[in-house]
């Protein structure tokens, strides 16, 4: 229904001032090759310095970030973004490594060889679903249970990926989908932080994903080989890293009054779903509920 061209036209005519700009950018977005060249040739340094929020224009910057769909923030896909993503993720990647060791130990206990566990970490790149999968691992292999659980646990990534669209709309499909291959919770969070502060680093997700991937695969091998030598990750507080990263992010994503309603809806939905439904459906449902309420609110 919402995709109906008529509805779309109506929504556009409401925001009449932006209509022509939006239309022209849509034309750009369609031409993947052309859209690629344009932002890439823009000067990344200028873009990042002018876009960096300062104390004075913080409010404006937040507004721009919030309405990134309406602004023309030059999102580039270049080495600067790649490097920034990689470097900023190293501390978090070390924590991911702690979890990789735990996964390796579990995989070893489940009877997977080092090569098999490493292959899983290198190609699946989704920690929670891998840990649950090796916990389900048995002989004979419960193939359907493993695959359905993997899907259920990872479905939240659809929503996380969709949330990147306002910044990724001008990047080519190869760049977008290639970056998403290495997307995990941690580097998605750091990428959102970077894009929200208008760095315009389109390659941040790929760079941070590479850092996470290296740590994850490397630690899986260490964990599988070392077996039970390393103990429980909770001893070192590694299990708290994801919560800590996301908590830190709330401080940055808060956009004042306008965040209150969607956040409350998401929190309530997630808490109730987590009580009633096993697995990680609560993330998906919390996000969807908040987005739905926002769509309804905008319609009033």
């Amino acid at each position: 229904m919402e995709f109906d061209p008529e509805t779309d036209e109506y929504a556009d005519s409401e925001a009449d001032g932006r209509r022509s700009e939006r239309t022209s950018r849509r034309a750009d977005g369609r031409e993947d090759a052309a859209a690629d060249v344009t932002p890439a040739t823009a000067e990344p340094n200028t873009a990042s310095t002018t876009a960096t929020p300062t104390a004075e224009n913080e409010a404006t910057a937040t507004e721009i970030a919030a309405g990134a769909t309406e602004t023309d923030t030059a999102v580039t896909f270049d080495r600067d973004g790649l490097r920034a993503g990689f470097l900023k993720t190293i501390p978090v990647a070390l924590g991911v490594g702690g979890y990789g060791i735990a996964f390796g130990i579990l995989a070893d206990q489940a009877g997977l060889s080092v090569a098999e566990a490493a292959l899983m970490s290198a190609t699946v790149v989704a920690g929670a679903s891998q840990i649950v999968a090796v916990e389900l691992w048995a002989d004979p292999l419960p193939i359907a249970a493993v695959l359905v659980t993997t899907f259920a646990i990872n479905l939240r990534y659809s929503l996380m990926g969709a949330a990147l669209q306002p910044w990724f709309k001008r990047l080519s499909a190869t760049k977008v989908y290639g970056s998403l291959f290495v997307m995990a919770d941690e580097n998605w969070a750091l990428t959102m932080r970077s894009l929200k502060s208008n760095t315009g680093y389109g390659a941040f997700l790929l760079g941070s994903g590479i850092a996470v991937w290296l740590a994850w695969v490397g630690a899986t091998i260490v964990g599988t080989v070392a077996g039970g030598v390393v103990g429980d990750p909770t001893t070192y507080g590694f299990d708290f890293i994801l919560t800590a990263v996301f908590l830190a992010l709330t401080a940055e994503l808060w956009e004042g009054q306008s965040s209150l309603l969607p956040w409350t809806v998401s929190l309530a939905t997630a808490l109730i779903t987590a009580e009633l439904v096993p697995g990680r459906w609560y993330i998906l449902l919390g996000g969807l509920a908040a987005a739905t309420v926002e769509v309804i609110r905008r319609g009033e």
């Binding site: 995709f3 061209p5 779309d8 992010l249 997630a270 808490l271 987005a291």
Partner: peptide, 29 residues
């Protein structure tokens, strides 16, 4: 969302997603 043209309302829904997802992750955690 890349395949379909999004109305302003749907795009507004997308922009609240990051915060909402973060809250949905840490709340139950």
């Amino acid at each position: 969302v890349r395949r379909f043209e999004l109305s302003d309302r749907l795009e507004a829904g997308l922009t609240v997603l990051p915060g909402a997802i973060v809250i949905a992750v840490i709340g139950p955690e």
